[in-house]
């Protein structure tokens, strides 16, 4: 531990303003340095802790970089097959209705192989929270093109850049699910700055509240970075994300509950 010199008197329990959530385990996160997954995992844990729902929470982790999410969150968790988390979560919530059920999925998992499960869980209005971390690339397998990869963006399977004529266009899953009557709250956020972290946390907190109301699917996209896949430093990647990803994936609420929008 490195401590600031001369300010020892500040480091006292009564002055504590921020520490890692008790719902995070002590396991070292398996993500690359600067990866938004860690921040997203952490604020999810914070919300679970702050709202006192640890004993009610059942999470579903995907296949991808966050496959080991169950090692980091101190809640009951299931590891789903690639793309199938919304189907898995459907059954959990139907069979244990008073639980808080979430899936945590990347863009390959949710927007490619799991497109059907995602759309149909949302269309049935399953009373679950889907957290969708979109970094425009397959991170875990080494930076291949994802359905969300931007036009012209280089990846290991689009080495000359994504050619939309032959490789298709980036898929905006969040806009798609927002059109479905089954979704209750759909928003796109990020976790790369303190202000954005606060907003995303607020969105997760809302989703927990909404799940208690049994009104339908909550869907939170977190546009995130992939420093390794994008071949940038974390700080560069966050800047590139703001400049290049956000214009295509603009942040903000896409669908808010009717009751709230008339307020």
């Amino acid at each position: 531990m490195i401590e600031a010199t001369g300010i020892k008197n500040i480091i006292k329990p009564e002055n504590l303003v921020y520490k890692k959530s008790s719902v995070m385990t002590d396991n070292v996160l398996s993500y690359c340095p600067g990866c938004g997954h860690g921040t997203a995992n952490r604020i999810l844990a914070e919300v679970i802790e702050e709202m006192g729902i640890q004993s009610k929470t059942i999470g579903v982790s995907p296949v991808g970089c966050s496959v080991l999410l169950y090692n980091f969150l101190d809640v009951d968790m299931q590891e789903a097959a690639h793309g199938r988390a919304p189907a898995v979560a459907t059954a959990i919530k139907r069979l244990i209705p008073d639980s808080f059920v979430f899936t945590y999925q990347g863009d390959g998992d949710l927007a490619a192989i799991g497109t059907a499960e995602t759309i149909h869980a949302c269309n049935r209005g399953e009373n679950i929270l889907i957290i969708f971390v979109n970094n425009g690339i397959y991170g875990m397998t080494g930076g291949q093109m994802a359905p969300t990869t931007l036009p012209g963006m280089k990846s290991s399977t689009s080495p000359a850049g994504r050619d939309v004529k032959t490789m298709g266009n980036p898929l905006k899953m969040t806009e798609i699910v927002a059109t479905l009557p089954g979704t209750y709250y759909v928003t796109r956020q990020s976790v790369h700055t303190p202000a954005n972290v606060r907003k995303t946390k607020k969105a997760i907190r809302k989703a927990v509240e909404y799940q208690k109301l049994d009104r339908g699917t909550c869907f939170i996209e977190i546009v995130s970075n992939c420093n390794s896949g994008w071949k940038m430093t974390p700080v560069q990647a966050n800047k590139w994300m703001e400049e290049t990803m956000f214009p295509y994936y603009p942040l903000g609420d896409i669908k808010v509950p009717v009751e709230e929008s008339v307020k």
Partner: peptide
Amino acid sequence: GCANCAMVCPDGVITVYKT
């Protein structure tokens, strides 16, 4: 003690105190 650093730390390694 604004905790901005802790807020964005992906690995949750920063603890913040304020007075």
